[in-house]
Nucleic acid binder design. Structure first.
Lengths: 343, 343
DNA sequence: ACGCCTTATGTTAACGTACTCATAGACTGG
DNA sequence: CCAGTCTATGAGTACGTTAACATAAGGCGT
């Protein structure tokens, strides 16, 4: 004999029918009370609410979703939650979802291996989601041939455009132009590039922006260096450049962490920043970790990106789901790691 | 007339019944094919699979969940996704969930305001979750009186123990003991504390560990300082200490970010680390942001914590849900920010 | 040829909800 | 006083899935 007064129903969760029986009303009336409809007698309402409390009623998400065909949740698929880009994506989407009373259903794919969009889509589609968002930080093998599942909104977060899927991303190409324009206007020409790992899509577009900026002005560029986004890899690269490139006057590191490492390396090599060498990064991510952050960088409005992503994954009624490619501009933040080059 | 060959059913999603009609079999046979059961004729299976493909069939999560009463997802409620502690919590839980084929349903509460556990629980319970995990980084107003919802596993991530709810956390008290023992063994006595904001539970327990370590040895302790977890606040505090406390030989900062700021401040004040002042932090979070990270710190096995949390929120069949309080020990990582104090 | 097992498939019921419609009683206005 | 309206409630149904049971056909040993 169970102590708890409630479950005469075995171990099955308490349903509206159970509550109805206890309160002596129909299941429909319980539904009305649960949804706060007005056309219920006050006395009845209280009796039903008492019964709900007593039995520990929890409305069935499955029943409700089955009934009205919506989940009020959006699926998010990323490879590694902790990576800065993904983290801020989750944050932006979470805040957009909250505004619309939605939850996020998060699935982490393999941290290291690449995954196909088809596979990601298949897994997400089996979950309670009204739309699917896939973070593609490295190019998926089936990107070009990918066909989104009909009947469910799909958005890929990436710089690549796709003919049949809406893609949204921070403008990883444009941020390079902002930074390069800033350096070029100051008078720099020998601007070295420290990139992320070559498989990264972000890296690819940031590097392209660096390259195009120089090419457009017919400046001969030196070989780009490859890091792994970490401060240590930036340090290594900075050290190498300090020792091997006497003509360099500026460094564009593809993220702030590497830029921070590069600055340390330059100083350890006896070079001053910004007097001898200017350094810029991307992300504006140092503030929490470094005191007196002086790095010139680009900041993205990641909340806006989150809202855009969300909006296209779960379009409001009426908003026709046309395929677009949205790029969120970054904002140049000039601090004190950049200056006019030494003559 | 729609171009797409599929939906003769209006705009309703394609169900097994639709597929069955198209393939000329019963709906049950479609179910068998969808679930890969063996007792289906090969010819029939192919006909059904073709129909699925053709119509764009997506199994209904709602129907399935309603049927077998499980969601294969666990709810996670945090205040701010981007905070280091929450981020690593999500990461650990995501990887544990993946091992068990589950997804995470993430809800972000207000970033800044405190929230009640009752409110968080109510919101989470309305979602498709088999268990609820609540990150309580500041003490909820109703913590002591909180009563978990019957019939759904609930875990709170916090250092506080609760009589009716399982709580799991990194051992924020024990990590202080590890660090303090290390410093005390080196011979330090004047160990100042730079803490996080006073409303933080982590801060409270890290500070308690510092206090108790000194009290146990009858060392008179100076007033703790309060930061906001950021490097800049650590810098401020470090600057203040360098200028006002000539007897101090070591600083315990309650996280690595503030420790990093404090180190910068000490050096700017002409003090050497570790020769003049030793500095320790907690989290081992600097590697990505700082080159040649030399900070002595404590690292937690956050994946283990994630697994523990997950396991207790969604206990395997048979594992009786007894209320426990689990504390994951940290590991002392000695680098080069600590040394024997100057005589 | 008969019963019996195996294989392939169909039928029925149940999960919990909310919409639509029906009904009974109370009130209103001419 | 009766038709019309409003309020409170109930009955019936459909949403998509799967377990349990039912059925039909074929093979096989005796």
């Amino acid at each position: 004999m169970a102590k708890r007064p409630s479950n005469d129903t075995g171990s099955r969760p308490v349903s509206m029918a159970d509550v109805a029986r206890a309160a002596g009303v129909s299941q429909q009336t319980v539904s009305r009370v649960a949804n706060g409809l007005s056309n219920v007698n006050e006395q009845t309402r209280q009796r039903v609410q008492a019964a709900m409390q007593e039995l520990g009623f929890r409305p069935s998400y499955a029943g409700r979703s089955l009934r009205d065909g919506r989940y009020h949740s959006v699926g998010l698929c990323v490879n590694d939650v902790t990576k800065f880009g993904n983290l801020t994506m989750i944050d932006g989407i979470a805040s957009a979802a909250r505004e619309r009373g939605c939850a996020i259903t998060l699935v982490e794919m393999s941290k290291t291996e690449e995954f196909s969009l088809a596979e990601a889509t298949r897994r997400m589609a089996a979950l309670p989601v009204d739309g699917i968002i896939i973070g593609m930080s490295r190019l998926a093998p089936d990107f070009e041939t990918f066909e989104p599942l009909p009947g469910i909104g799909t958005v890929i977060v990436t710089m690549y455009a796709h003919p049949r899927v809406t893609t949204v991303d921070s403008d990883h190409y444009g941020c390079s132009l902002l930074l390069m324009d800033h350096l070029l206007e100051l008078g720099h020409e020998q601007i070295r590039f420290i990139g992320g790992p070559s498989f990264s899509v972000d890296e690819e577009f940031r590097r392209a922006g660096w390259r195009d900026s120089l090419e457009r002005r017919h400046i001969k560029m030196a070989e780009p260096l490859e890091g792994d986004w970490s401060a240590n890899s930036g340090y290594e690269a900075g050290r190498y450049l300090a020792e091997h490139d006497r003509t360099m006057t500026a460094i564009y590191a593809a993220n702030d962490q590497m830029a921070n490492g590069a600055i340390a390396a330059l100083r350890d090599s006896g070079l001053r920043v910004p007097e001898d060498v200017s350094v810029v990064g991307v992300d504006d991510s140092l503030d929490d970790f470094v005191a007196h952050n002086e790095l010139t960088t680009v900041r993205f409005d990641l909340h806006q990106r989150g809202r855009e992503v969300f909006e296209h994954a779960v379009p409001e009624a009426g908003t026709a789901g046309k395929t677009v490619a949205i790029r969120i501009s970054g904002q140049l933040i000039i601090r004190h790691s950049t200056a006019i080059p030494r003559s």
